[in-house]
Design a protein around this nucleic acid. Structure first.
Lengths: 339, 339
DNA sequence: AGCAAGACTGTGAACGCTAACAACGCTTAG
DNA sequence: CTAAGCGTTGTTAGCGTTCACAGTCTTGCT
């Protein structure tokens, strides 16, 4: 009772003293080493409990040279897609016994991604997953610091970093083909912003379906994912003669289009059919309920982690793998044969 | 050239050797200590550059006993509210030169929150912000491990942990008063799930406004925030005679209500007026555009960080502060006088 | 010239943990 | 009866930083 109670939280040595053993024995108990006498173990455990001891993970990571922490580099985690992916990542990592440290970039350029990864490397993360939906982000992966396992999700294939993503082209193709099969002459497109790989993939799929059917591809209207930009595209489309089917690159813009059509007196799907992309939770409750392409973002995140863990556990084969999650097409009430 | 190139990334000692100085001088350069000769500084900098040296933040944190990292405990980061808040937190923390480590709980109970905070404490985070929109989470804050600065956001007042949140009561009151002022006899309510503090606050504000006007409060319908639950409430409401105004506890449910009304042939705002809560990006493009209460989630996150940093820099006055962000009322086209 | 004050740099010891090895006591076989 | 073997524990040395202190080398002043 002579020593003043430590002002700092207890450390391993304190526990050792309290239990009458060496710090190393405490460490052994904590790490489930086999050769500790049961009685000693319980004594140590009791001391830990009594002192409220918590092991310092930083010191542990410093000594072992790995942290059981995975780094995530993301961009605008408030968007539906990235948010869902990051959520999947967190859950999968936790299940595998890893923790997650997130760096969320405001603007996503080569330098930002590099800095983020450098920071994470400084934290001794065991691996990194980069949410790289934009071309600029994906290309930043080309010159990753070697030595640290990394995967990209929601991105294109660049360098030899493994990638997990939803097959945008297939989804867009299916959406377009669906409209064509209903009898529409051609399908218009409201695309996402230029730098986004997903936007590009959807344009590509849409073009491919059109080309397959031998139909002309109208000039796409370019949006920025927001309902507002969809609204503007919708106004323009409503006034363009001959438009009977529109494939919109995401559901939020589709809502904007829908709103513009309502204001302009264009009935959906009576006069114009509409297909979206993503299947946000709201889409089923639009008026009319939106036919769309569902992406399982959480699955993308989970698979990203699975791939990353495989790389961590069996390094070497850093083959530029590519894992594709198939989208699923959800038919609701916004599509019908042309008038 | 005799030494084999280190298999591990270079450490401070390597830089020191390369620059012909002591490791301590390298440290000084890195930490911008004043007393380093300019020439020495550039020599060290050059060596750092040449070797591609990156300081090990773990070791630094271990030595300094703080990590310039803030911990975030959150729940379902895929929801609009928490996602927005977490985004605000990340941005504000980054601006202040802090990093962010996130633990995202699947279910939010006392034990989960405790574990999360313990883990973060083990990471030597300098502070913790808990996104605690549920009563169970908020009450978990009552027995926080002392010593580590913490604030709660989006939560109620419990224990003496400072809280930042949007004034739910005021928002709900305003929404209800708006409907009353339009001439509606009374206002019905579709509430959020039981355990949520925000749901409770909105019920309270709604009740208060009704009581003030001396109007009876109908039994609220309870939803779970999802469009689907709103849809069900909407069907029920459409068939209840005498309903002319509904205040829905969030925009997603309001969308569901809207959909049900459309299906039942109930015109909005012709026969029933509708007010939502949150102002999600989609709300302005509903049919009709939704009158709603906007919450600035990012501001909540930013203020949470601001409060936390104040606590970190000036410990001691852990007074149970309470910072309230005012909501703002956005009138669109879903409200009108009763028929 | 002499000497203190200041600038600059180096040395050793933490920080709290794990890894590697050494040492101890007890059993068991030769 | 002794040596080897095993289970169990303690000791020492890192992991890569920073901190406290002790030096050394300039200056500028008397």
């Amino acid at each position: 009772m002579g020593a003043t109670p430590a002002r700092h939280p207890p450390v391993m040595a304190d526990v050792a003293r309290a239990a009458g053993v060496s710090h190393q024995t405490v460490s052994r108990v904590l790490n489930d080493h086999p050769n500790v006498r049961p009685e000693t173990r319980t004594r140590v455990l009791a001391a830990i409990e009594r002192l409220g001891y918590r092991r310092n993970l930083l010191a542990r990571a410093l000594a072992t040279r790995h942290s059981r922490t995975l780094g995530v580099v993301s961009f605008d985690t408030a968007l539906y897609g990235p948010a869902g992916t990051v959520y999947g990542i967190e859950q999968a990592a936790r299940e595998a016994g890893y923790f997650v440290s997130i760096v969320s970039l405001r603007t996503i350029d080569r330098e930002g991604v590099r800095d983020a990864i450098d920071y994470l490397a400084g934290q001794s993360v065991d691996g990194v997953v980069v949410v790289a939906p934009q071309r600029s982000a994906a290309s930043a992966l080309a010159d990753l610091p070697a030595g640290i396992p990394a995967v990209a999700v929601e991105g294109g294939h660049e360098g030899d970093v493994p990638v997990v993503s939803v097959d945008q082209v297939a989804g867009a193709r299916q959406a377009t083909a669906h409209l064509l099969a209903l009898g529409h002459e051609t399908v218009w497109h409201v695309s996402g912003p230029a730098d986004w790989l997903e936007a590009e993939g959807r344009v590509e799929g849409w073009r491919a379906a059109l080309a397959e059917a031998g139909r002309p591809a109208p000039e796409p209207l370019v949006g920025d994912w927001s309902p507002r930009s969809g609204y503007e595209a919708g106004r323009s489309l409503a006034r363009t003669p001959g438009v009977s089917a529109v494939f919109v690159a995401n559901d939020q813009m589709a809502l904007g289009v829908l709103r513009a059509f309502t204001e302009e007196g264009v009935r959906v799907p009576g006069r114009i059919s509409l297909v979206g992309f993503d299947d946000i939770p709201e889409a089923a409750y639009f008026s009319p309920p939106l036919t769309t392409v569902r992406q399982d973002f959480a699955a993308v995140g989970r698979n990203g982690i699975r791939l990353l863990l495989r790389m961590i556990e069996a390094p070497g084969q850093t083959a530029g793998e590519r894992l594709v999650v198939p989208p699923s097409f959800v038919v609701r009430a916004s599509t019908a044969p042309p008038p």
